[in-house]
């Protein structure tokens, strides 16, 4: 029994060390920075100040913040509505093709998402593939200008984050016992009401997990709005990046990071409790 314990302990210690060095320490540094003063010469003045927080509790930042939350919410909603049927078909498909379909979901991960975002430009730019297709099919008469709009940013976010919605949905739909669906049909529920009263509540953990995995990254992703939204789209992620790299206002950037992290932490705690209570419900005998 000694060796497995040693292995387990060292694995845990290794993970803890890794998280400590690469996640906790940087976060503490950011926390500290958010309470310091801006310095024109050396990034930070090591004196206590709420300047950074004062900077972000301004109408300008709040607007950036609400836009980001809204965009992240719409991204999650689009991913959910488009991803659920896909995950459902995936989970109920013949096991022979299922792995192939799953592979199709995962393949995009093999390419860096920055490169994939640049690739998107070729599709949605004014003389890009999408416009060419729509023109050819005579659906539109002159090319649509889609680049540097909220639509472009939304497309980019949905495209990049979709697999993070599909995979947890797939996992929970696959676990959904078809016998519950038969029981519902037997008791007089049609297909839609079976879905509403049985499938949906029983796959809720997957839905929540998917939303978490889409909503949280969507808040912080800065390169997609940068590339596809141009200067017009200012989201929390870009704001933070700009504070650090352009405005050189580290306390403000750090304060925005801290606020964002706190919001994510609250969402994760909510998720944790909803998950553990629904796990209690899902015990079947």
């Amino acid at each position: 029994m000694k060796t497995p314990n040693l292995f387990k302990n060292s694995a845990i210690a290794g993970t803890a060390l890794w998280l400590g060095v690469f996640a906790l320490v940087p976060f503490l540094l950011i926390c500290a920075a958010s309470f310091m003063e801006r310095s024109p010469t050396r990034f930070l003045e090591p004196v206590f100040s709420l300047q950074g927080y004062r900077m972000i509790f301004t109408p300008g930042f709040l607007k950036v913040f609400t836009t980001s939350v809204l965009l992240a919410a719409v991204t999650s909603a689009v991913c959910l509505v488009a991803g659920y049927p896909f995950a459902y078909i995936l989970a109920r498909s013949n096991p022979r093709y299922r792995n192939l379909l799953l592979l199709l979901v995962i393949i995009p991960f093999w390419t860096n998402s920055l490169i994939r975002t640049y690739a998107l430009i070729f599709i949605i730019k004014t003389n890009g593939l999408l416009n060419a297709l729509l023109l050819k099919l005579s659906i539109i008469s002159k090319p649509l200008s889609m680049m540097y709009t909220d639509f472009a940013v939304l497309t980019g976010l949905v495209y990049t984050l979709m697999p993070f919605m599909i995979l947890p949905l797939y996992a929970s739909i696959e676990k959904l016992d078809p016998r519950y669906l038969e029981a519902a049909r037997d008791l007089g529920a049609g297909k839609w009401r079976t879905f509403l009263h049985v499938s949906l509540p029983l796959t809720l953990p997957g839905i929540i997990a998917g939303i978490m995995l889409v909503f949280l990254p969507a808040l912080g992703m800065f390169y997609i709005p940068d590339i596809l939204g141009g200067a017009k789209s200012m989201l929390v992620g870009n704001f933070i990046k700009n504070q650090f790299l352009t405005s050189r206002d580290w306390p403000a950037g750090a304060a925005a990071s801290v606020v964002l992290t706190l919001i994510m932490a609250i969402l994760l705690i909510v998720y944790y409790f909803s998950e553990s209570s629904s796990r209690n419900k899902a015990v079947v005998t």
Binding site: D177, R179, E182, A184, D186, G190, K281, V283
Partner: peptide
């Protein structure tokens, strides 16, 4: 006729009670 339109009900071997 699909199951939901038949005036027949089943007690399943596994019970299949809705857990939620």
């Amino acid at each position: 006729l699909p199951p939901n339109h038949r005036k027949v009900n089943t007690v399943f071997q596994s019970y299949a009670l809705f857990p939620h």
